[in-house]
Every structure is written in C-alpha cells, then in structure tokens.
C-alpha cells in the first residue's frame, strides 16, 4: 500500500469525528449568533425584528455582568487553588508508607463518582442546612449560632462544594505523578542535608509540574461550565450574589424568557471561553506534549 493511499485513508478516518464535532459546534453557535441580534421574547412572541447590538449592550451594561464575570473567575480560580494545594498535600501524605493504601485511594476518589446534583443536594441539605444540617448541629453543640452558609457566604459555599467534587481528581493525578519520582534522588538530597521543605521545593515540585499542568487544563474545561451545583443550591442568589456567567445566561433564557439577550450573553461567554482556551492551550499545550 502506497503512502499516498495511506494518507488519504487517514484523512477519511479522521473526517467523521471532525465533521460531527464541527456540526455540533457550528449549528447551535450560528443559531445563537442569529438570536443575539433579534428581538425574541417568549412572553411576546409576536413582536420580532432585528435589534442590532441592543441585546449585547443590555447584557454588558447589566449590573450583574461584572459580578457574574468575577464570580466565574472566583469559582474557577478558587477551585483550582484549593484542589491543587490540598491535592498536593494529600497526595504527599498518602504516598508515605501508610497502611491500607488501596482502601485510602477508594475513599479519596469517591466524590468524583458522585453526580453533581447529588453532591450539591447532600451538601445543601445534610450539611449546610441552617436547622437540620450537620454543621448547624455542630455549631449548636459549641453553643454558637449556626452559620447561614448559602445565604451569607453563597460563593465560598459553592466553591467549597465544587472543590470537594474535584479534589479526588487532582489528588489521584498528583499521587500517580509522585509515585514515579525516584526515591534515590530524594535520599541523595537528604544525605546532602536538604530539609524536607527544600526537598519539596527543589525536587518534588518540579517533578509535579506536568501533573499540575494537566490538572489545571482539564479542570478548567469542566469548571468554566459549572451550572448544576449553583442551580441546586443557591439558584444564583441571594440576589445575584452567586450568579456566574453561565447562570446569568440561564436566568435570562428561563426566568426572564428573553432568548435574544440570553443569546447575546451566550456569544459573550463563548468569546471569553475562547480567550481562556487560547491562553491555556498556548501555556499548557506545550507542557503536555510528550
């Protein structure tokens, strides 16, 4: 078989994936773009027409917009920091010669298999609920007032829940990376009198760079679209205190029933996601190359 036909065959084999993904991306995107320049409200379906950039102007001038951007960044950034830092510490701990490592792994990975609506409702009802939650019971045990987690600290609470869901992922990947580190190198450093912090700083951390890169890249992809956890717990409230960009779009579409404005928000979100994607791929893509 000649190389020529081989190349052609290869193209044909890649084509279905590319074509399907392209359609899956372009059809909804084109429709969203079309709606974003239209007057399209489900409550007054008879009034339609082109409105130019009005939907965009409304969305960008909405007082919720910058808050939503900030909340989205806080959610992604907060969860990344918590999972990478705690994940590293826990991975270092489990990597020690402890008894029952297999069972430990099983316990630690469990939250990853819990579907988001279940994770959110466990935390909301069984733990954070101001009357019946376990945290409230603990607070009462100490004679303190129960903390109104979702009312007073909605964003930190949501970040906490999402971080719990993603901590196993970060921990396991970092643990896998740690286990490929040679112990001779560490022992040599120890002989040379390197303390445990300096061993961590100069040997362990550089070794983990690739793993941390992978964790950041993969988690960001999933975290940018976080929706279910907010929908189940705070519904973006109180007020707009925990409204992220995806949630703000959802509110425009489902609560306000203004498809035009929601579509404009969608296009803005796609543009922002692409900016983040370009940065991530540039910075991290190289790192992932074998």
């Amino acid at each position: 078989m000649s190389t020529q036909t081989n190349r052609l065959a290869a193209r044909l084999m890649v084509a279905p994936s590319v074509i399907l993904l392209f359609i899956w991306m372009i059809v909804p995107l084109a429709m969203t773009l079309y709606f974003s320049f239209r007057l399209y409200r489900l409550l007054t379906p008879e009034r339609t027409g082109w409105v130019g950039f009005n939907n965009y102007i409304w969305f960008l001038n909405s007082p919720d917009f910058w808050l939503a951007i900030w909340n989205t960044l806080a959610l992604v950034g907060g969860v990344l920091i918590i999972t990478v830092v705690l994940g590293t510490l826990i991975a270092l701990l489990i990597d020690q010669p402890v008894k029952g490592q297999g069972v430990l792994r099983i316990l630690v990975i469990a939250p990853f298999f819990v579907m988001p609506p279940v994770a959110a409702s466990i935390w909301e009802n069984l733990f954070m609920h101001p009357q019946n939650g376990l945290f409230a019971a603990i607070a009462r045990g100490f004679g303190a007032q129960p903390i109104l987690f979702l009312e007073q600290y909605p964003m930190p609470s949501v970040i906490g829940i999402v971080a719990w869901e993603w901590l196993p992922f970060a921990t396991l990947i970092l643990l896998t990376a740690l286990q490929s580190l040679s112990s001779e190198q560490l022992e040599a450093a120890e002989m040379d009198g390197a303390g445990s912090f300096s061993r961590f700083r100069h040997i362990i951390l550089p070794h983990l760079t690739r793993a941390i890169t992978a964790v950041i890249l993969i988690q960001t992809i999933f975290l940018l679209g976080i929706f279910g956890e907010i929908y189940t717990t705070t519904q973006g409230g109180p007020g707009s205190a925990s409204t992220t960009l995806p949630y703000m779009i959802f509110k425009q579409a489902i609560v306000a029933k203004d498809i035009g404005r929601a579509a404009a928000g969608g296009i803005i979100a796609v543009i922002l996601a692409n900016i983040v994607a370009v940065f991530l791929m540039r910075g991290l893509g190289k790192n992932l190359d074998a």
Partner: peptide, 22 residues
C-alpha cells in the same frame, strides 16, 4: 496537534450558551 487542540476547545463552549438552539 492543532486539530486535537481544536477538538478539546469545543468542550470549553459553555453548555448554557447553546441550550436554547439545541
């Protein structure tokens, strides 16, 4: 490589943004 990166980047499109069209 670019094709692979492009594929991954389609996952970054927020689902909510294309909810109504789909």
């Amino acid at each position: 490589k670019d094709l692979l990166m492009w594929m991954l980047s389609t996952k970054m499109m927020p689902a909510v943004a294309v909810m109504i069209p789909l």
